[in-house]
Amino acid sequence: MMLRSCYRPLERCFGRVAGGGGDGLMWHADLKQHASGDYSIAVVQANSNLEDQSQVLTSSSATYVGVYDGHGGPEASRFVNKHLFPYMHKFATEHGGLSADVIRKAFNATEEEFCHLVKRSLRMKPQIASAGSCCLVGAISNDVLYVANLGDSRAVLGRGVDEDKKQTVVAERLSTDHNVAVEEVRKEVQALHPDDSHIVVYTRGVWRIKGIIQVSRSIGDVYLKKPEINRDPIFQQFGNPIPLRRPVMTPEPSILIRKLRPEDLFLIFASDGLWEQLTDEAAVEIVFKNPRAVSSCLCLVCFIYFFLQLLLIFKSRT
């Protein structure tokens, strides 16, 4: 299957928006076609150091979307942007199509290869051990939607509902937030570490694993997964080492598989910067009320809220 790729820097595909920069707006794209409909993209840079990546790959039969929210440096998100989809394509070819098992294999292979890179690079670049990335992936193939997630980026579906002969929209969350601010996630992490009373600590106004990080799943963050890296004298000179007997984070994604239905109108894939400012319901209302001018509308949202990145896929009904 031949895939056509658009990836950061996406101005190669769409062009940088005129006048962007002072307000953080990097670029946006009006509606473009994909296998199942249209998609639109808008990105705002909220930090001085851009650590995030995103990509859309399309073919005549399938569409792939990735949102990679990096932290601790750009190395992990850039690595995921380069390697995750090729692994998905490789394993899907070997196993006769896309499946939850194929997606897990691709995530695990990406994690393993990045860990190897960290070990090879540690002497020259010890800070790479603290680079990590949340990963949100969506794939549409044969009217089946796959959503895989690590971290606290989020996929939300806008579903049409007929009320009193008038169509409205409801929000349906399709991904799990792996963030210890969520009580269920916090209890999950604590249950996995019953002998560590400080596995989750409330500090600097939020809950954090070992007082360091809010998300419980990622690609990278090798120093929180590999005790030997954490104990390495080279890394200890760079970082703030903590006692680590076993991994406190995991690269295992949560996966949802859903048959697309006629009432499914659109999908929103966004990093946590959007969801810290908008509820699921507010986001789908914005898209629903501006169905053919969504880029301009969402650029306004970008300007106001400075979220990191947003991708939309529209399910065509024509």
Rank of each mutant, 00 (worst) to 15 (best):
S197A: 14
V287Y: 10
R78D: 13
I268M: 15
S175I: 01
V65A: 11
F238N: 01
S153R: 12
K225E: 06
Q55R: 13
G70F: 02
D162M: 12
L145G: 02
G24D: 08
Q127V: 02
T318G: 15
F314M: 07
R173I: 03
F79C: 04
V80R: 03
Q127H: 06
V65M: 15
Y68W: 04
L312E: 13
W275D: 11
E184V: 04
S60Q: 11
P227F: 11
R186W: 04
V180F: 04
A129C: 05
I313Q: 00
W275G: 12
D196Y: 09
F314V: 06
I304K: 14
V102Y: 15
R186P: 00
V215N: 10
D143A: 05
G37S: 10
W207F: 09
P233V: 01
D272H: 11
D30N: 11
A129D: 03
F114Q: 15
R245G: 15
T168S: 08
S197I: 09
S36P: 00
S60I: 07
M249C: 03
I229M: 03
Q190E: 09
V102D: 11
D52H: 11
R231K: 14
Q127D: 05
L31N: 05
A282T: 10
S218D: 02
Q33W: 05
L260Y: 08
S5F: 14
R154C: 07
E172M: 14
L145M: 08
N142T: 00
G66K: 11
K165C: 06
T279D: 12
R4E: 09
V201H: 06
L311M: 09
T110E: 15
V65S: 03
I313T: 14
I242H: 12
I255R: 08
S153C: 15
N49S: 04
R173K: 14
F91L: 06
F79T: 10
V170P: 00
H178E: 00
K226L: 14
V156C: 08
V201S: 01
R246H: 13
K259Y: 05
L244F: 07
M2C: 08
I209R: 02
T250R: 02
L145A: 09
S141N: 04
R246Q: 13
Q167W: 05
L311H: 05
Q53R: 11
Y87A: 08
L244K: 04
Q167K: 12
S197E: 11
V284E: 11
Q127I: 04
A62D: 09
Q214M: 12
I199Q: 01
I268H: 09
